[in-house]
């Protein structure tokens, strides 16, 4: 794999496309590095390297064309037996801070690893989940919006 900062950049580029949130917004959660580390721990160098290389290639080849990017992602990552489940796990991790155990099929084919069990990455990753701001809410038990805010319509920022 490339040097550390290159890996993080590639991970952020892929994450931004998969989540629909900007690189800037993702960095603001403070979770990019822990999520990269969690993915690496769970799937290993080889699978992560393949995922990021495929993502970089798809992004480069699309060169800003959204339709090409979408087709490339589906063809080379999301429908790939090895890379698809990992990419979907990265999405879920960004949205709720939880790493979900990979499907048994994947574990059989690519050797299961210890940290692959379903777990919350850290207490902070829970409160930084992107799902909550997406629905105009706060993560239950944190970042309360203030007395009475619930009586108004939610503030949504839909793409």
């Amino acid at each position: 794999m490339a040097d550390d900062s290159g890996v993080l950049e590639a991970f952020l580029t892929l994450s931004a496309t998969l989540t629909g949130y900007s690189r800037f917004r993702l960095l603001g959660t403070g979770q990019a590095e822990p999520y990269l580390a969690t993915t690496l721990d769970a799937v290993g160098d080889d699978a992560l390297g393949e995922l990021l290389s495929a993502s970089t290639a798809v992004h480069d080849e699309a060169a800003g064309d959204e339709r090409a990017l979408d087709q490339g992602l589906r063809a080379r990552i999301l429908s790939d037996d090895k890379l698809g489940p990992v990419a979907r796990n990265v999405i879920k991790m960004w949205f709720v801070g939880t790493w979900y155990q990979l499907p048994q099929e994947w574990r059989d084919a690519h050797a299961s690893r210890q940290p692959d069990s379903t777990h919350v990455v850290s207490p902070a990753s829970y409160t930084e989940g992107l799902l909550w701001p997406t629905i105009g809410a706060n993560p239950p038990g944190a970042k309360g919006q203030g007395y009475g805010t619930w009586s108004s319509p939610p503030t949504l920022d839909l793409p």
Partner: peptide, 29 residues
Amino acid sequence: SPYTDLVELVDDANVYGAALRRGVVDRIS
């Protein structure tokens, strides 16, 4: 919910990115 909704959207409905954000609102809000 909302965990199960998220998992279904990502794993079964095969949406990501902007479509996922819209899907999450549509399913949960």
